[in-house]
Structures are given as structure tokens and as C-alpha cells.
């Protein structure tokens, strides 16, 4: 049991981060905090992918002079890293759009609190 949790501690940590993100989105009233929650959620998912590529005792997948080995098993898997570069960019783009929307919301309603906005918009 303990090896199940401790042996995969990275994955468990990522799950915790994902849950924190979800908590933020669902239970926080301030729109900016929701956005932060979303960002944490995405970070957790990126983290879990990156954990996938890691191996005990493996090295960075860069073929450097003199120090490299030709056995593929000694390198980390580079694919999840590349995929996650894309995902990070997607996250940034989402944040950009979200900030633009938040600024527009703030300009129109003067507040970023969900319940206040709803009471102003739907009386």
C-alpha cells in the first residue's frame, strides 16, 4: 500500500494539484480566483504528463558529446514534454483571452465578484 502511494508520489501530488484547481474553480466567488483555479488545474495536468516521462535513473534526452549512451532506455521519454509545451502554450492563450474578458467585465460591472455581477445583470 505504502509503495503504491509513495512509489508514485509524483502522480499523487499532481492529482492533489488538480483537485486544488477544481476546488478553486467551483467554490471561489471571485472570477479572478476562478481563473487562478483553472490555471492550477491545467498546471496539475501538465505536471502529471511530465511525470509520465520520468524514469528512475534516466537522463535528459539530449545527445551530448562524450557523456551519452546509445541505450534508449536510459533517456527520459521526450514525447510528453513536447506535448506539454503545446499544452502550456494553450494555457497561456486561455489566460490571455480570460484576462481580456475579465477586463471587459470589470469595465462593465465594476466588480469581479460573481454574485454581485449576477445581481446587477439579472435583477
Amino acid at each position: 500500500m505504502s509503495s503504491y502511494i509513495l512509489g508514485h508520489y509524483a502522480y499523487w501530488a499532481s492529482i492533489v494539484v488538480i483537485c486544488v484547481g477544481m476546488y478553486g474553480i467551483l467554490f471561489k466567488k471571485n472570477l479572478l480566483k476562478k481563473l487562478i483555479g483553472l490555471s492550477i488545474l491545467q498546471a496539475g495536468i501538465i505536471q502529471i504528463w511530465v511525470c509520465l516521462s520520468s524514469k528512475w535513473g534516466a537522463t535528459v534526452p539530449v545527445k551530448a558529446q562524450g557523456l551519452s549512451t546509445d541505450v534508449a532506455a536510459n533517456y527520459l521519454s521526450p514525447l510528453p514534454h513536447c506535448l506539454m509545451l503545446t499544452a502550456i502554450v494553450v494555457g497561456i492563450a486561455t489566460m490571455g483571452v480570460a484576462f481580456a474578458l475579465l477586463m471587459a467585465i470589470h469595465k462593465r460591472y465594476g466588480t469581479l465578484d460573481e454574485s454581485e455581477i449576477l445581481s446587477k445583470a439579472c435583477p
Partner: peptide, 22 residues
Amino acid sequence: FAVYTAFRYLIIGSIGGSLYLL
């Protein structure tokens, strides 16, 4: 009100995309 509904859509849609990624 469209900016607010779009923001809500952003949050929910991004959750959807993230769940898919997971």
C-alpha cells in the same frame, strides 16, 4: 452580459478540454 457568459463558457470549456487531456 455577453462578456460574463463568455467568461463562464471559458472556464467550463477549459475544464472540458483539460479533462480530455487528462
